[in-house]
């Protein structure tokens, strides 16, 4: 299996090392031609304005949209913002997922937090039911989901933090920072 990580800016090396530990061949994607032959793509956390601007400057928006119609894409944090249809402000988006997202929904860095969340979808890759440690860093939330989107996880107050639409996956939090590879294995199933 060959999975790309969008390497314009952000925590792409962290995703790469989890994938490599699972025996996946990883390609860093900085230009459209790097998408060839990939089974899936991860868009990492970082600054969504920076990632969006560089994607526009290097003509990646359209190739990424086409890629996402046929292949699995997983966006974490800034990546989830980039995958969404609408964020209530002007910046480049892929508009692939039928979700609206609010940036910096929990406040500033001093409000960033960790919490254990129940993640029933992970039973598909690991039969031992246990919570998943989620790390939220200046994180967005998924404000609303449209047709075809399944909610995978919510905070105790009901706010949506993980969703899936077919082979597209969005998480507000950072599974690449926790040392728990279940979410990466879940994504590999989507990319098969």
């Amino acid at each position: 299996m060959k999975i790309g990580v969008l390497a314009l800016q952000g925590a792409f090396a962290e995703h790469q090392s989890v994938l490599e530990s699972l025996g996946v061949e990883v390609v860093q994607v900085r230009l459209p031609q790097h998408l060839a032959q990939l089974d899936g793509l991860i868009i990492p956390g970082g600054e969504s304005t920076t990632i969006g601007k560089l994607a526009e400057d290097f003509n990646l928006i359209q190739p990424l949209r086409l890629f996402g119609r046929e292949h699995a894409i997983w966006g974490t944090c800034a990546g989830a913002i980039f995958l969404s249809k609408d964020i209530g402000r002007r910046q480049p988006l892929l508009e692939l997922m039928n979700i609206t997202v609010a940036r910096n929904a929990f406040g500033r860095q001093v409000d960033s937090f960790e919490v254990d969340l129940s993640m029933p979808c992970l039973l598909e890759v690991d039969p031992v039911d246990r919570p998943f440690r989620t790390v939220f860093i200046r994180a967005p939330i998924i404000e609303s989901v449209g047709k075809g989107v399944e909610i995978l996880s919510q905070l105790s107050d009901g706010r949506i933090v993980a969703a899936r639409q077919g082979q597209l996956l969005a998480t507000s939090f950072h599974p690449e920072l926790t040392g728990d590879d279940r979410f990466h294995r879940y994504f590999m199933e989507l990319a098969k």
């Binding site: 600054e47 919490v115 254990d116």
Partner: peptide, 22 residues
């Protein structure tokens, strides 16, 4: 489900999100 703010993981994590940037 207790939320933990200001942990070293969260502090270090923001810097990880800045990587590859200016």
């Amino acid at each position: 489900m207790e939320q933990k703010v200001g942990s070293f993981e969260v502090k270090k994590g923001l810097a990880q999100m800045l990587k590859g940037g200016v």
